[in-house]
Simulated scan of single mutants.
Amino acid sequence: MTTLCRRAFSLVELLVVIAILATLVALALSAVQRVRGAAAKTQCANRLRQIGLAHHHYHGAHGALPPGVTVGGPGEQFKYMTWQTRLLPFLEQEPVWKSAVEAFRLRPDDFRASPPHLIGVHMPAFVCPSDPLAQQPRTLSGTTFAYTSYLGVSGTRQTRHDGTLYADSKTRFADITDGTSQTVMVGERPPSTDGISGWWYAGQGQNEDGSADSVLSTGERASSFFFSGCSTAPSEFGPGRPDDQCAGLHFWSMHPGGAHFLLADGSVRFLPYTAKDVLPLLATRAGGETAELP
């Protein structure tokens, strides 16, 4: 009578199989993460394209692009309203726009009064899916604030106003003599770590001009308590970290290697951080510079 013997796995063989399975799982997870990251990056660019289309519709209706932030003078009804709030009717958000107008009518003296103001209302259209800092509203000192991943490009310095979106700006496409395909209008920058800057609805900014809040220059300087301890030298385009408050002074994103920018012609380009010397040339509307997009 023949006895059949079934050989069992040795401990070494079992460990090898486990190691192979672990490697395959790790590779699969890495692939899934890459696919998700690519999808989020694409959606981020698409939201910028929608913002670009809204800018063009706004220009068609009003003869100029929206102010980067409204400062105005005494009696200004929409004081510190951002360009994003003004785009609401052109992003299929007419009811939200009407609520904002009514809120500013009732409380023109304090946009932080919520209600009636919408300072804490989350607007996905203004948030990049890759940006965790802007995904949810945050409560600071009893007031809830909602954030944006996109800031208007005010120019090369916050006081020069040589870009397209800045305090009380009314830029026309005809004013962009550098060419709409050679001028950046909006760029990525996650909200500041402490949540003080990066509100989509309204905001004073560093110097009550929206600086580093709703608009940002390519050479922003720290000039208020918002960025206490940060260098007062001009900032430049480069990588940032979610835990670095000073990263709020320059354009950057959660995407590896660079950030998306909306050009005045409505197109979106992903600029690598190696383009830090080119970005200031693209930030002016009428600087007369010649710059080649990377």
Rank of each mutant, 00 (worst) to 15 (best):
F226V: 08
L279V: 09
Q43D: 08
G52Q: 01
G73K: 09
S192P: 03
L27R: 15
D109Q: 15
Q93Y: 05
H250L: 07
A113W: 14
V121W: 05
T148Y: 07
A26Y: 13
V268F: 10
I119Y: 00
P242F: 09
L65P: 01
A275G: 08
E220V: 11
A61N: 13
R221P: 06
I20G: 05
P239I: 00
D175G: 10
L65T: 02
V17N: 03
I176A: 04
L14S: 08
E236S: 13
L271S: 06
S211C: 13
T85I: 12
E289Q: 14
G287C: 13
A291I: 11
I176S: 02
G288W: 05
W83F: 07
L279S: 00
F104Q: 01
K79S: 12
G229H: 05
S141V: 13
T82C: 13
E292Y: 15
V127N: 03
S197H: 01
C128L: 09
D265Y: 06
C128I: 10
R105N: 11
T70G: 02
L14A: 07
F251S: 02
S253V: 02
W83I: 00
L262Q: 00
A26S: 14
V69T: 02
A22W: 08
Q206V: 10
S267R: 07
L11H: 09
L216Y: 00
G120V: 04
Q136W: 03
S231N: 09
Q206T: 14
R160D: 12
V186P: 02
F270E: 15
F126Q: 02
S211P: 05
E289F: 15
S223Q: 13
M81F: 09
Q182D: 13
L282M: 12
H59F: 09
E102D: 14
T144N: 06
L11R: 07
E220T: 10
S231R: 10
A247E: 06
G120S: 06
A174P: 02
V153D: 08
Y150T: 10
A275N: 03
C44N: 00
C128H: 06
T156K: 15
Q77L: 15
D209A: 07
R107W: 11
E236A: 14
P280Q: 14
T156A: 11
W252M: 06
T177N: 01
V25C: 15
T284L: 15
P124D: 11
S211G: 11
G63A: 05
A212M: 07
S267E: 09
H255V: 14
V16S: 10
W83L: 00
Q33H: 13
R7Y: 14
G52T: 03
P116Q: 08
S228A: 14
F261K: 11
A259W: 00
Q206K: 13
G187N: 05
